[in-house]
Amino acid sequence: MALEQVDIKRRLSGVDVPTRRKGLLVTPELCIGCRGCQTACKEWNKLPGDRTVNRGTYENPPDLTPNLFNRIRFVEVGSGDALKWLFISQRCMHCTDAGCMKVCPAPGALYRTDEGAVAFNKDKCIGCKFCVAGCPFNIPRYDEQGRVAKCHLCSDRIAYGLQPACAKTCPTGAIRFGDREELVSYAKNVGFKSLYGMNDLGGLGVLYAFKEKPSYYGLPDKPDFAPTISLWKGILKPLALIGLGGALAAAATHYITVGPKETDEGGEE
């Protein structure tokens, strides 16, 4: 896979996001649910098709899988004249403050590309699934070998100046690729005052231009990772080192100041 070759150029880890960050602007209003992106994604990433059944809906497969990085959700809301049929791309958001990267214990398994994408390297993944817990959007999936798989913004395409397969295929511009800043100003120009993911989690790499509330599309109104992760990352993790260092320092101090409890028997040798 070409991914590994590109990978060599990539910085292995870290959350410092490049200033010329690339991203996607998803406009569900423009999405016609054709799922060209779903197929294009599979084609580029050489992902097999899974056997499925019709569950009484167009939406299929029922969830993201290690073989499905991008899925169009079909949501029917209301009835009669108020009926709406919504289509929305579900995939990795490439957060600036990426919960998955925060908790990943294997450096390089998840990594930030020069373009700001959160990519993965299956060879480095140790299969702990912490990233599943760390993700506020429930995106990462594990393959049969227990290795992580998810959208990587076609890091092996964008590194060479191509668009991600999904954006390339989209006939209506519902998935638009470009410099994140330019996407933001473009969205403003076409009338979207605020974007989902503009500032959430440090700014998402995948921005959504919604007219309705995000929850309408099954997304959290205010995305954030689990509080235990912030607690751990913000307080406890430094505390562990402080604890270790502190304990050693305390022992040394005690030894010097109070001193050991000698057995007063004049030496037992």
């Binding site: 779903q38 197929t39 084609e43 098709g49 056997r51 499925t52 019709n54 167009y58 299929n60 497969p61």
Partner: peptide
């Protein structure tokens, strides 16, 4: 015959 397409629309409805 394309598994990708069949995966999305597997059965007559």
């Amino acid at each position: 015959h394309l598994p990708w397409q069949l995966e999305m629309m597997p059965q007559i409805f």
